[in-house]
């Protein structure tokens, strides 16, 4: 008798005929590229002769801001900062899906078979820590505020009154906006601003919360997009500042 397709199990077993593996593959490639680059960048604040690569003029790479380097700390200052956004992204409701699918094959795709193994989801250590996402959100909000301050500086060159708008300013502007939308579309944020309420029409404060919740909901629908766009923009902003600082690229003044 022929094989009973219903009872077949195992990684990748499916009757799907589309390229279901395309998406996890692309996600894995994207995430690995970013992680490799960012790790290298974070660990390489300066060139081999001590020349500073993480900032140029008033531009500062988002990976190194706020710049904070106590004398006892022997490694790259980025490490003191990056754990926060890394934690935010690692516990992000969008990225969780992305890496559970792409890295853990849990599941590799919808209606696609998995390896059989004990499964506890997010109900036990370590993944139960995903529940702390909102604490990373609080940090992320502080970082976004910091980014806006950095951005304000990026509109200057030799001091507060020396107005300057270069390609780098534009890069940092786009990065800051994308990060703001990414953090602003966070699911935990959506819950805190109003999602937790059962009824919006009980008092004027809830009325305001409802309006904020609506806005957050609107951008939350594309949380995945903001997640990726801001991921690339952070990487690119760092790369841009770095290339200018290294002298490989020259920042052009727009006006």
């Amino acid at each position: 008798m022929a094989i009973d397709v219903r009872t077949q199990k195992g990684l990748g077993v499916t009757l799907r005929q589309d390229n279901w593996w395309g998406e996890p593959l692309a996600i894995a490639a994207g995430l690995i590229t970013f992680i490799v680059y960012m790790t290298w960048a974070a660990l390489t604040p300066t060139g081999s002769h001590g020349e500073i690569w993480y900032k140029w003029g008033s531009y500062i790479s988002p990976a190194f801001s706020p710049y904070f380097s106590p004398s006892w700390f022997k490694w790259s200052p980025a490490i003191l900062i990056l754990w926060a956004p890394a934690g935010f992204r690692a516990t992000c409701y969008y990225f969780r899906k992305a890496y559970y699918r792409a890295f853990f094959q849990d599941p590799p795709g919808c209606a696609v078979g998995e390896e059989s193994r004990e499964y506890k989801g997010e109900s036990s250590f370590p993944f139960i820590l995903q529940n702390l996402h909102r604490y990373f959100l609080y940090l992320a909000i502080l970082l976004v505020i910091n980014h806006w301050i950095d951005l304000a500086w990026a509109f200057t060159k030799e001091g507060p009154k020396d107005y300057y708008f270069g390609v780098g300013t534009l890069v940092l502007l786009v990065d800051t906006i994308l990060l703001t939308f990414y953090v602003g579309s966070c699911h935990a944020w959506r819950h805190l601003v109003g999602g937790k309420l059962d009824c919006f029409s009980t008092c004027p404060i809830n009325d305001v919360r409802y309006k904020i919740w609506c806005r957050v909901t609107k951008i939350n629908e594309n949380h995945g997009f903001w997640a990726w766009a801001s991921l690339f923009s952070v990487g690119f902003a760092d790369l841009y500042v770095r290339l200018v600082a290294m002298g490989i690229w020259t920042d052009i003044k727009i006006f």
């Binding site: 969780r96 989801g121 997010e122 036990s124």
Partner: peptide
């Protein structure tokens, strides 16, 4: 109801 077992991989929404 074990909501912690859900790892929000969104296949439910897709189908």
């Amino acid at each position: 109801h074990g909501i912690g077992l859900c790892n929000i991989t969104r296949c439910c929404t897709e189908v």
